[in-house]
Design a protein around this nucleic acid. Sequence first.
DNA 1: AGGTACGGTGGGAGCGCTCCCACGAGTGAT
DNA 2: ATCACTCGTGGGAGCGCTCCCACCGTACCT
Lengths: 359, 359
Amino acid sequence: MAIRETGGRGPIRGGRGAGRPTLEEVAARAGVGRGTVSRVVNGSPRVSESTRAAVEAAVAELGYVPNRAARALAANRTDAIALVVPEVEHRFFVEPYFSDILRGVGAALDDTDMQLLLTIVGNDRERGRLAHYLAGHRVDGVLVVSLRADDPLPDLLTGLGIPAVISGRRSADEPLPWVDADNVAGAREAVAHLVARGRRRIATITGALDVYGAQCRLDGYRAGLAEAGLPVDESLVVPGDFTEASGRAAMESLLTRDPLPDAVFVASDVMAAGARQVLRERGIRVPEDIAMVGFDDSAIARHMEPPLTSVRQPIEEMGRVMAQTLLTEIARPTLPVGIPRPPQPRLMLPTELVARSSS
Amino acid sequence: MAIRETGGRGPIRGGRGAGRPTLEEVAARAGVGRGTVSRVVNGSPRVSESTRAAVEAAVAELGYVPNRAARALAANRTDAIALVVPEVEHRFFVEPYFSDILRGVGAALDDTDMQLLLTIVGNDRERGRLAHYLAGHRVDGVLVVSLRADDPLPDLLTGLGIPAVISGRRSADEPLPWVDADNVAGAREAVAHLVARGRRRIATITGALDVYGAQCRLDGYRAGLAEAGLPVDESLVVPGDFTEASGRAAMESLLTRDPLPDAVFVASDVMAAGARQVLRERGIRVPEDIAMVGFDDSAIARHMEPPLTSVRQPIEEMGRVMAQTLLTEIARPTLPVGIPRPPQPRLMLPTELVARSSS
DNA sequence: AGGTACGGTGGGAGCGCTCCCACGAGTGAT
DNA sequence: ATCACTCGTGGGAGCGCTCCCACCGTACCT
């Protein structure tokens, strides 16, 4: 993943450091100058068709592969970007979110010569190391996933002038370029779906509300009820924190309401799994007594009993789009001071309701 | 992870490409020559104590960080190694094995300036890309985990002369440098443990036997029985393939034996979990009716009901040792042709039985 | 005919480092 | 005092690229 070659294929040469061909050698073979070969290899349009063909032939014959270090040195780039995960390592491997993002980023980078450095910063020591690393300008750009609102990393990046793209916003007016799923629309659609199924007393279990995305899902829930002409009963809004345990607790709380809700929109599949356990223990049927809709459409949703209707986020696509956006940012020439920068890219990706038998 | 700086700390300078200090500037500031600064930065002993101090002061004041591309170009290195995982991406994230290896490798690399490239090759297209990448000599060495016996990757690496270390052998006479857990001893210990608990009719569920480690565990099982003076009943040896489903199937098969086994050594925790489900469905008690021992000591073992006795492999340490071994290999000067190479490093790490209530 | 423009090209300069050779000062043997 | 080393040091050469400027030829103007 995240590795690719620009040059052509060719006979593999053995031995460590065994004279790999250089630009100069390719140029000699093709009977052209060094600059021309460079132009061909880098896809410049200012090369005649015949010259290009000759150079490409020479590249193929010699099995030329550009020397990345030389290129980086001369062009003052690094051809590497970092994917920063400000989470303890354990979570990185557990949450399917990250593997999907990684797959998308990898896919986007497969068509480039960029290297991807995976950087998991789980503690302050690793944070300090990352800061120093970034200060050393060893990557051309940074992708940040799962950023908390109070994280100092964005300020560091801005101060260093390193292009960055984050997944998920921290607030409505996120200053950094971002890629996010349309959480509001997703939640609204979930509610509309429950309404269409005849539910009228729809509760919600929210995520940690200091996460902007959780707030959006709550807003979408409210908007969905409003659109259906249903009142918002605040006693049916119960906070969770994205953990399974909080889903259990929230559902237990909801079961004290009278009358009981006939549906619940849960802001994550993991919390929905916790809530589901409580319902099973109490003998409450899903979806007959209470319908459920989750969020994330993770593997857990498919494996629940009954399978959980859930709002799918296009996570892999988010990864791909993040990477492409970052590449664009990096390619953009540095503007002279004084000229206002064009607006930051902001990309909201649509969600999709995946209906299963829990609703 | 896998990022580190050699140079000192210092004031962070803002702006993309904003004049980072160079060796030359540090030299001027310290009042010495370029070569001397290079020597200090690279820890050469041939520098006087006073000069060293002066240079280090200048490095700190300017916040000097070596330019990795320039260094790589001049020294004909890349300062990067690849961790190659010949597995579908999904498994990489699911198996705790990989995250532990990664953590160990990361830890070993934290004290160096090496970059780690994670390369998951799940299909032939990615294989081809990796081959081309390696042919381009873009890494100084390669770490391979989870290699299957028929994988052509090792030949490629040998042909290219790229140093490599693999985790787990492919056979008893693995030609590549390797780091492996002592699977035979671990299995033997598991059996001895069951014998000590009074069990006499001990079955085993094996892993996929084309994986050398699985074969070793089976050999250890046989050796353990032999040491206890117990006969090997081949009807109690049932093959699995490391999946949960195969564990279920194997246990169902074992339950047709008469008399039933009173214990089972399962070659992986995941298979043990499958086997456990079958026992629960049949109302067979663990450990009263059948004692169980697993292998890997993964999270799943701790979370089983009852918690599973398991053979722990020092996976994180294996990762660390692999990385250190590779670093040594890379540092070893290329020997002139004709002189026999020193023997390849072979490191067998001990396993440890973690007793819980399933036995 | 001369002038102008421009696409296409060659090659110098230089990126920041490592490697290595040369050189001076100090040390001890002759 | 001379020679032979050693140790510490300075700096030239060069790694393989990209960038850019100068140059050439052709096409199109006046």
